[in-house]
Design a protein around this nucleic acid. Structure first.
Length: 620
RNA sequence: GGCUCCUUAGCUCAACUGAAUAGAGCAUCUGACUACGGAUCAGAAGGUUGCAGGUUUGAAUCCUGCAGGAGUCACCA
C-alpha cells in the first residue's frame, strides 16, 4: 500500500479508496474477515436516502454472526473513527450509508479545479503501445453508416485508452485489391467514357462506387439472359461475361499487368481523396496506414512454419488446413489448392507484421460482431503457431447498425451514405441555430464551423452513447434531435458555463486571483467547514467520479460509459445552475467557489466529450 | 439444422463484479423566478425486466427449458 502514502502528498486521496481500505481493515479487526480493499463494493447512495456512499453489509453478516443492522452499525462507527472525512453514517436494514464531510468536497474542488487534465492519466511514450486497428474500408465504394460506427468507435476507444494512460497507435488496413475493385474498374472502362472526379464534379469514392453499382446492374442482366437461354443460375453467375472479365482482370492485376495496375492506381487514388475528405469531416485519423496490396502475400511463410511444426496439414489436393475440431470448431482453410492465400492467411501475416512493427502490448481490432468467429479462429491459430502474444489480440466486437425498416442493404439502396448523412446533419444544425438566433452576429466562417461541430456532436453522441457490443437502431429523425440525452445538450451546457466564466474573468472581482493560488499550497485550503448546498454537492460528486469512470470505461472499451457520464454531469450542473445564484451571489467567497466549480465542470465536459471525438463550443 | 449473441416503459437506451421502491431521454400532460444563455429546469403518467422453472438472505444480472429476433457455419473479405 505504498502508493497511498504518495497520493497523500500529491493531493487528497480519493475518499472511495480510503473508505474501501478502511472497511477492509475494520472487517478484519472486528470480525477477522479477510477482504481485499478492491473487493469492498461501495455504491452511490440512492438519492432517497441520506449519505454519499453505501456499503451493503449482507456479504459479511454470516461470518460476523450478527444481525445486518448490528454489523452495519459496528462498521460505521469504526470507520468513522478511522477517517476524519466521514462526518457520519446511518443504517437502514443491511445498508450502511456513509456521509462525507463537506470539507472534503470543498477541498477536492480547490485542489483539482484548475487542473485542465483532471481525470486524464499521463501517457508514457516509452511504454509498449496499444495498437488499435479500425476503419479498414474496401476501396470500391464510399463509406456508409456502418463504417461510421466503426470509425467513431475506433477513434474514441483510442482516445479513451490514452486518457487511461496507454500509449496508443491507430492503424488502418485498407482493402485496396480484390475482385470487388476489379468490378468497379471494369465497369468504368466499359461504360465510363473517361469520366473523372474533375469532369463530373463527383467525389472520387462516390464515382468509383457508382461504377460498382453499374457493374452489378449489367451483370444481373447478363445472368438473367443466360438463365432465359436455359443455363442454371449457379452456372450463369460464373459464366456471365462480365464476371469472366473481372476474374481475368484480377489475374492480370496479380501478374502486374501495367494497364490494369495503372487503372487500379488511378481509381484508388480517387477513392483515397474521397476517403480523406470523409475522415477529415468525421475528425478521425491514423498513425499508420497499411494496404492489403502490400500485405496480402504475408502469412504464407507462417503457413509453412505451421506445416513444419505439424500444427497444420496438407490435403491431397494440396490445400492447407488447420484442424480446430479439438477446440470445438471446424477445420479452417489457410491456403487454396492453387497455393493462393485467403483472408485468414493474410490476417495471420498482418498480425505478425503489426506485432513486429510496434512491439505492441495489445493488438485491438475494431471489427463488427459478424466476424466473431473469424477472430476466435485467428487467435487460436496464432496460439498454435507458438506466438505467446496470441492472447494480446483483442477483437473489439461491435454490434450492427439497423435502420427502422431493417438492415442496410446496398443492393436495395437502403444504405445511409456517410457524406450524405453529415450534410443532412449540418443542414439541420444550421436550421436549429438560426431558429434560436443566438449566433447571428458571428462571422459566417465561424457559423459554419459551429454547425459542423453541432452536427457531428449530435451524430457521434447518438452512436457512441450505446454500448458498443450491442446492436443499435439508427433512427435518422431521432439522431438529429438536439434536446434531452444528446450531444448538443451537453455542448449547450458547456457553452452556457463558459459564458459565465468569461463574465467572471472579465469582472472587477477577478476570480482567478493570487489569493487562490496561495491558498492551494495550504493544506487547510478553502473554507473547510462551510456547508455546500444539495445541488453543489451533486455537481462536486459527479466531478469526483470522473477518474474512476474513465478507468472503468477504458477497461470495458466502452465510450458509452463516458458519454453517459458526461450527460449525468451536465444534468447535475443544469439542475444546480437553475436555482443557484453564481455571479449574482453576494458572498464573494461563495461566489468565487461557484465560479470555480463552473470552470471545473466546463473543463470536465470538454475533456469527456473530446474522448468521444466531440468538440464543445464557447458559444452556440 | 449446429454454434454464438440478444429480448428492460409506446419508442430509443441505462443499471459497475447479484442488493434498498429497475433509472434517463423522446413522445403525452402540468408547472417555472422579467434569461447570471429557456437548445434550460421542476413535476405527473408510463414496468409482472419475452415466458416458465431453479439457485440465493437478495436476481434485469447466475443456471435449465421454451418462444421470438440477429449473426455465423465459403477454396468471399
Amino acid at each position: 500500500m505504498q502508493f497511498v502514502f504518495i497520493y497523500n502528498i500529491v493531493s487528497i486521496m480519493d475518499i472511495t479508496l480510503s473508505l474501501s481500505q478502511a472497511v477492509a481493515q475494520v472487517l478484519k479487526s472486528l470480525y477477522g474477515i479477510e477482504a481485499e480493499a478492491e473487493s469492498v463494493v461501495l455504491q452511490d447512495t440512492r438519492k432517497e436516502f441520506k449519505g454519499d456512499y453505501t456499503l451493503v453489509v449482507f456479504p459479511y453478516v454470516k461470518q460476523a454472526r450478527k444481525s445486518p443492522e448490528a454489523v452495519a452499525n459496528e462498521i460505521g462507527a469504526a470507520v468513522k473513527e478511522l477517517l476524519p472525512e466521514v462526518a457520519g453514517y446511518n443504517v437502514i436494514k443491511g445498508f450502511l450509508n456513509f456521509e462525507i464531510a463537506d470539507s472534503y468536497w470543498s477541498r477536492f474542488v480547490g485542489e483539482n479545479a484548475e487542473d485542465s487534465r483532471f481525470g486524464l492519466a499521463k501517457t508514457n511514450p516509452a511504454e509498449a503501445p496499444v495498437v488499435v486497428e479500425y476503419s479498414s474500408p474496401n476501396t470500391n465504394k464510399p463509406l456508409h453508416l456502418g463504417h461510421i460506427r466503426n470509425n467513431l468507435l475506433g477513434w474514441s476507444v483510442s482516445c479513451l485508452l490514452e486518457a487511461a494512460g496507454a500509449n496508443v497507435k491507430k492503424v488502418n488496413l485498407v482493402n485496396d485489391r480484390g475482385i470487388h475493385i476489379c468490378k468497379s474498374m471494369l465497369a468504368w472502362k466499359l461504360y465510363g467514357n473517361g469520366e473523372t472526379p474533375e469532369s463530373s464534379g463527383m467525389k472520387g469514392d462516390h464515382l468509383v462506387g457508382k461504377y460498382y453499382v453499374e457493374y452489378d446492374k449489367h451483370y444481373k442482366e447478363e445472368v438473367k439472359k443466360l438463365m432465359e437461354s436455359g443455363v442454371e443460375e449457379e452456372q450463369a453467375k460464373k459464366d456471365a461475361p462480365l464476371m469472366v472479365e473481372a476474374q481475368s482482370m484480377l489475374k492480370r492485376w496479380e501478374e502486374g499487368d501495367k494497364e490494369v495496375r495503372d487503372l487500379w492506381e488511378k481509381m484508388n487514388g480517387w477513392v483515397y481523396a474521397g476517403f480523406d475528405e470523409t475522415y477529415r469531416r468525421l475528425g478521425v485519423g491514423f498513425d499508420k496506414v497499411y494496404y492489403e496490396s502490400n500485405t496480402y502475400l504475408l502469412g504464407k511463410e507462417l503457413v509453412q512454419k505451421g506445416l513444419d511444426m505439424g500444427v497444420l496439414f496438407r490435403k491431397e489436393d494440396g490445400s492447407v488446413w488447420c484442424d480446430l475440431t479439438g477446440d470445438g470448431l471446424d477445420q479452417k482453410l489457410l491456403l487454396r489448392k492453387d497455393g493462393t492465400s485467403v483472408y485468414m492467411t493474410q490476417d495471420l501475416g498482418t498480425a505478425l507484421l503489426r506485432h513486429n512493427d510496434f512491439g505492441a502490448e495489445r493488438l485491438i481490432y475494431v471489427v463488427g460482431n459478424e466476424q466473431d468467429y473469424h477472430f476466435k479462429v485467428l487467435k487460436l491459430i496464432l496460439g498454435k503457431l507458438g506466438f505467446e502474444w496470441a492472447d494480446k489480440v483483442y477483437h473489439l466486437s461491435y454490434g450492427m447498425v439497423e435502420l427502422p425498416n431493417g438492415k442496410m442493404k446496398s443492393r436495395e439502396g437502403t444504405v445511409v451514405d456517410a457524406d450524405d448523412l453529415m450534410d443532412e446533419m449540418e443542414k439541420t444544425a444550421e436550421e436549429m441555430s438560426r431558429e434560436h438566433g443566438k449566433n447571428d452576429e458571428l462571422p459566417a466562417e465561424e457559423q459554419q464551423h459551429l454547425y459542423h461541430i453541432l452536427a457531428l456532436g449530435a451524430l457521434k453522441y447518438f452512436i457512441l452513447k450505446v454500448d458498443p457490443t450491442k446492436n443499435m437502431l439508427f433512427n435518422p429523425a431521432e439522431s438529429i434531435d438536439f434536446n434531452g440525452n444528446t450531444g448538443p445538450f451537453i455542448q449547450y451546457t458547456h457553452a452556457r458555463i463558459r459564458s459565465i466564466v468569461r463574465k467572471a474573468e472579465n469582472s472587477e472581482f477577478g476570480i482567478l486571483n493570487s489569493e487562490l493560488a496561495d491558498a492551494k499550497n495550504n493544506s487547510e485550503f478553502r473554507i473547510p467547514n462551510s456547508e455546500l448546498t444539495e445541488k453543489e454537492r451533486g455537481v462536486v460528486k459527479a466531478l469526483h467520479a470522473l477518474p474512476q469512470t474513465i478507468k472503468a470505461a477504458a477497461a470495458a472499451y466502452s465510450p458509452a460509459m463516458v458519454a453517459n457520464y458526461a450527460y449525468d454531469l451536465a444534468k447535475a450542473f443544469n439542475s444546480f445552475y437553475q436555482d443557484t445564484p453564481i455571479l449574482r451571489e453576494s458572498n464573494p467567497e461563495v461566489k468565487q467557489f461557484r465560479v470555480q466549480l463552473c470552470a471545473f465542470v466546463a473543463n470536465a465536459l470538454k475533456n469527456t466529450m473530446n474522448i468521444l471525438g466531440i468538440e464543445v463550443p464557447e458559444r452556440m
